[in-house]
Computed example of a mutant assay.
Amino acid sequence: FSTKKEPITKGVIVKVLGIEFSNWGIPRLKCEKGFLTANKSYVQQQDMSNYFTTNPGLVKMIQDDFYYTSAEFSTKKGPISKGAIVDVLAIEFSSWGVPRLKCETGYLSANKIYVEKFEEKNEF
């Protein structure tokens, strides 16, 4: 921790790439933009089990929602109805570290309370 970089706002989710130890044996969180303290009084592990963090392929809307113009969700683009099936192109993360579903029409929440993985069922 000899050189400070940009500050991180409380509540921001940061992807941790690994843990490295200082010369004194203190654990540090290795992130894309540098290192963070591993002290639990400053950071907590985020439970991402409620989000898609890998591309699910097709998703079905569980409730009405909106497409957004970017992963930041600052501007709504248009509505999407419950039951709609959407092809997901990729997973992108907002600057706060929240996963989003990148689709042809815009961005959707990757939160599983809004969408579920759609599995086509062949019925014969």
Rank of each mutant, 00 (worst) to 15 (best):
F66S: 03
T54M: 06
D65Y: 05
F66I: 04
Y67N: 01
D47K: 08
Y68N: 03
S41G: 14
S49R: 13
S49G: 12
Y67Q: 05
V59T: 07
P56F: 03
D64W: 04
S74K: 11
A71G: 11
Q45H: 11
Q45F: 10
Y67S: 01
G78V: 02
Y51F: 14
V43T: 07
N55Q: 12
M61I: 08
M61W: 04
T37Q: 01
A71F: 02
Q46E: 14
K77W: 00
L58M: 11
N50F: 10
P79Y: 00
S49M: 12
T54K: 10
T54I: 09
Q46L: 14
N55F: 08
K60T: 10
G57W: 01
T37A: 02
Y67W: 08
E72D: 15
L58W: 01
S70V: 09
I62M: 09
T69I: 14
N50W: 07
D64F: 03
F66V: 05
Y67C: 08
Q44R: 15
M48N: 05
P56M: 06
T75G: 00
Y67M: 05
N50D: 14
Q63M: 14
M61N: 05
Q46N: 13
S70Q: 08
K40M: 12
K76R: 15
A71N: 05
Y42F: 13
P79W: 00
Q45C: 08
F73C: 09
F52H: 04
K76N: 13
P56E: 03
K76S: 12
S49P: 08
I62F: 10
N55L: 11
K40T: 15
S41P: 14
T53A: 05
T37C: 04
T37V: 02
G78A: 03
M61R: 03
F73Q: 05
K77V: 00
A38Q: 02
T37K: 02
S74E: 09
Y67P: 00
A38T: 07
A38Y: 00
A71Q: 10
M48D: 03
S49A: 14
Q63E: 15
P56Y: 06
Q45W: 11
V59L: 03
A71I: 02
Y67T: 02
S70W: 02
A38W: 03
M48A: 10
F73N: 05
S70N: 13
D65M: 08
S49E: 13
P79Q: 09
F73M: 07
M48H: 06
Q44E: 15
T53I: 13
Q44P: 10
N39Y: 07
F73E: 06
M61T: 07
G57C: 01
Q46T: 10
K76Y: 11
F52R: 07
Y68G: 00
V43F: 06
K60N: 08
Q44G: 13
S41C: 14
S49W: 04
F52T: 03
A71D: 09
M61C: 11
V59G: 04
S49Q: 13
Y42S: 11
S74Q: 12
Q63T: 15
